[in-house]
Design a protein around this nucleic acid. Structure first.
Length: 441
RNA sequence: CGGGGCUUGGCGCAGUCUGGUAGCGCACCUGGUUUGGGACCAGGGGGUCGCAAGUUCGAAUCUUGCAGCCCCGACCA
């Protein structure tokens, strides 16, 4: 993509409404613009990141056996009356009335709708287990939206819903999602820590929040430092997942609402006690028959008797992750994108557009990289070097390839690693080889 | 929802106390000189000062009401 033909409005100064770093950087790097409190438009840069995150989430959900569907943003009030949540949900639910005076709502979550779809189409235990998910916009009319895209009112969420014949089977569905979440976040370059979460009225041990550490996180978290370095293994979803789950849950890890100071002190050695702030990027829980009973989501079991299915739901805040990743990965100059979610892999900087040697070498490099399947943003604007360098640092692509009159005629490319700042001058072929791999951090 | 702050050109701000018809930096347009870390000179365009009502000869400035946005707290992917 040629920057001169792209749409990338960067800002030199911080907009006054943005207070936290991810919000400031996302505005300055031309990723999003605010439309109203907690409601954002995505510009091309932001959309690219969102799509890459979405793709990772989708691939890992599919791999874990979940099946993608797409439910609408607007839902009839009727099914929420059935589950009893229409009144319970309160003012966070945006209610809408259509021209026929029918009550609708903009979905804050989809348990009711998916349960309706399930019960209307599945009758037998032989069709279980099932795990259905979708990636769709949600709306929760938060009292106080803040932190840019991390606490918006409108947000993109992946939500999955599992249906099983009994609790033992449901537990397995839960484990699969647990592992899929570990894998998803790891692929995005994040260390997401599963933390025991409040299970509410259902009880049991089947609820975890996945938290990434960041100074601006909303909740305080307490954990054993060793969790941070646990490897995420290749997943065999057909095999026994318990060892993986156990490895991650053997350590103390809790948010402030679940925290117990005495237990923390007793179970975690002093030098391993980690207190930090975190951002919740995922939440999984098993809720049994909470919705299947009132909504009559029944299947016939092997004994010929109808039973209400056992369900769980599993959410990932896709749009929140964009902000979360920026929080977790930036420096004073701008964003530092992990390779897997970078809007482009490489920023190709032509220091002197119009200079024959520079133009020619840039074109060559651009074509070679593109042919290798890489996303290249080619800064061919007629701007000064300083402007290009600072814009490139700001938008944070993993690699920068700089071509200027100094080295162009010798066929030299200067390659810079955005994360480390390390620079090296290379011949074209060597540059192509280096740039085609994720940078070592 | 309670407390605090803000609203003046695309962005960042001054001017408001003490009313006199709007200014600075950046960005943008034209021309020229420049050109490896956000250049310089000259010229230029763009604002019913958040909205409404009031006071006044005269309101960005004073009064009242409303709206939007941000921050702190209690709640949430």
């Amino acid at each position: 993509m040629r920057l001169s033909e792209y749409f990338l409005p960067t800002l030199k100064e911080n907009p006054s409404e943005a207070q936290i770093v991810s919000h400031r950087l996302m505005l300055r790097a031309g990723m999003v613009r605010q439309s109203a409190a907690g409601i954002y438009s995505g510009l091309p840069m932001g959309l690219r990141v969102l799509r890459k995150i979405e793709r990772i989430v989708r691939e890992e959900q599919d791999r874990a056996g979940a099946i993608e569907v797409l439910m609408p943003t607007l839902q009839p009030a009727e099914i929420w009356r059935e589950s009893g949540r229409y009144e319970d949900y309160g003012k966070e639910m945006l209610r809408i009335t259509d021209r026929h005076e029918r009550d609708l709502l903009y979905g804050p979550t989809n348990e009711e709708l998916i349960t309706q779809i399930f019960r209307d189409n599945v009758r037998s235990y032989r069709d279980l287990p099932k795990n259905l998910y979708h990636i769709q916009w949600k709306f929760r009319d938060e009292i106080r939206p803040r932190f840019g895209v991390m606490r918006g009112r409108e947000f993109l969420m992946k939500d999955a819903y599992s249906f099983d014949i009994d609790e033992a089977s449901a537990r397995r569905a839960y484990q699969k999602m647990f592992v899929a979440y570990l894998r998803s976040f790891r692929r995005m370059g994040l260390k997401a820590l599963p933390m025991a979460a409040d299970t509410g009225p259902i009880g049991g041990d089947l609820s975890h929040e996945f938290i990434i550490l960041a100074e601006t996180g909303e909740s305080e978290v307490f954990c054993h430092a060793d969790i941070l370095d646990l490897p995420v293994p290749e997943a065999d979803y057909e095999g026994d997942l318990s060892p993986v789950i156990d490895a991650f849950t053997q350590y103390y890890a809790r948010t402030d609402e679940m925290h117990d100071g005495d237990e923390f002190a007793a179970n975690v050695p002093g030098d391993k006690q980690l207190t930090a702030r975190g951002i919740e990027v995922g939440h999984i829980f098993y809720f049994g028959q909470k919705y299947s009973e009132p909504m009559k989501a029944m299947v016939t079991g092997p004994d010929g008797k109808d039973v209400a299915v056992h369900s769980g739901s599993y959410g990932i805040g896709v749009s929140r992750l964009v902000g979360g990743i920026v929080e977790a990965s930036h420096d004073d100059d701008g964003i530092i994108w992990p390779w897997a979610v970078a809007p482009f892999h490489i920023g190709l900087v032509n220091l002197k557009t119009g200079h024959e040697g520079c133009d020619a070498l840039c074109e060559k490099l651009h074509d070679a990289l593109t042919q290798n399947g890489l996303d290249v943003l080619y800064d061919d604007r007629d701007e000064r070097a300083g402007t290009k360098f600072s814009d490139m640092d700001l938008i944070g692509l993993p690699w920068q390839a700089v071509i200027g009159p100094r080295g162009a005629d010798k066929g030299e490319v200067e390659v810079k690693n955005r994360a480390t700042g390390e620079k090296q001058v290379l011949a074209l072929d060597a540059a192509v080889a280096l740039l085609s791999a994720p940078p070592e951090k």
